[in-house]
C-alpha cells in the first residue's frame, strides 16, 4: 500500500528535479508507545550522529495524528544537493542549513507526506486536512519530547530514496491517537476479511 503511494511521490519528485528517483518502503513497523521502547536513532538503518532534519505535518478532525519525514542531517545535505543540482557542497557548511535548504525539504516533505497520509485517508475513507510541513533540526531526544503525549501508537515506515546511484535512507513516523489507531486496525481487519471471503 505504502509502496504505491510513495511511487506516486517519487514520480512527481523525479519530474521536478529532472532526475530519476526511486522510492521504496522496505519495512513497516507499528509500535505501542506505552509498551514498546522507541529511539529515533533506531528508525534509521545507518548510524547517525543524533542530528536529524524532520519535516512534519499534523492532521486533525476525523483522524488525528502527526506525520514526520526524518533524515539524518548528513544524509539530507546530500539529498538537497541532488535536488537543486548542487554537485558539491563545501565541507565548511556541510551541516549548516539555510532557508533555501529548509524550503527544499519542505517541498519534498509535502510531496512524500501527502502521499503517505493521503493513502491512510483513502484506506479509512476519510478526507484528511493538513497544512504545509514544518521543517526543523532536532537531536533525537528533543524531537521525542515535543511529540504530544496523547498519541498512543507510531507507524514507522523505513524509506529509501535512490537518486542516480545515490542511496539515501530515511523514515516516516506517523503518530496516531488510540482512536485513530483503532480505526486503522478495524479497517485493515475488514480488508483482510473481504480478501478471504
Amino acid at each position: 500500500m505504502f509502496n504505491v503511494s510513495v511511487g506516486r511521490a517519487s514520480s512527481l519528485l523525479s519530474e521536478i528535479i529532472d532526475r530519476r528517483i526511486i522510492l521504496n518502503v522496505p519495512d513497516v513497523k507499528l509500535l505501542d508507545i506505552k509498551t514498546d521502547e522507541f529511539h529515533l536513532e533506531e528508525c534509521l538503518p545507518e548510524k547517525s550522529d543524533g542530528i536529524f532534519m524532520i519535516s512534519s505535518i499534523c492532521f486533525e478532525h476525523e483522524l488525528q495524528g502527526k506525520a514526520s519525514l526524518i533524515f539524518s542531517a548528513k544524509k539530507i545535505r546530500k539529498f538537497i544537493d541532488l535536488c537543486i543540482k548542487n554537485d558539491e557542497t563545501e565541507e565548511c557548511y556541510e551541516l549548516d542549513f539555510s532557508d533555501i535548504d529548509f524550503d527544499v525539504v519542505k517541498e519534498m516533505g509535502n510531496i512524500v507526506l501527502n502521499s503517505v497520509v493521503g493513502e491512510v485517508g483513502n484506506l479509512l475513507n476519510l478526507k484528511l486536512n493538513y497544512t504545509l510541513p514544518q521543517v526543523q533540526i532536532y537531536n533525537g531526544a528533543d524531537f521525542y519530547e515535543e511529540v504530544d503525549s496523547h498519541y498512543s501508537h507510531i507507524l514507522i515506515l523505513n524509506i529509501t530514496f535512490l537518486i542516480e546511484g545515490t542511496r539515501i535512507e530515511g523514515a516516516i513516523l506517523v503518530h496516531l491517537t488510540l482512536n485513530s489507531f483503532n480505526d486503522i486496525i478495524e479497517k485493515i481487519k475488514k480488508i483482510k476479511d473481504e480478501l478471504y471471503e
Binding site: 535536488c83 517541498e107 501527502n114 504545509l132
Partner: peptide, 18 residues
C-alpha cells in the same frame, strides 16, 4: 499537483531552489 489539490483540498509548496 493542481488536480490533487482540487481533489484533496490541501496545500502545496514549490520552492524557488527547485
Amino acid at each position: 499537483t493542481v488536480n490533487d489539490l482540487f481533489e484533496s483540498g490541501n496545500k502545496a509548496f514549490f520552492s524557488a531552489a527547485m
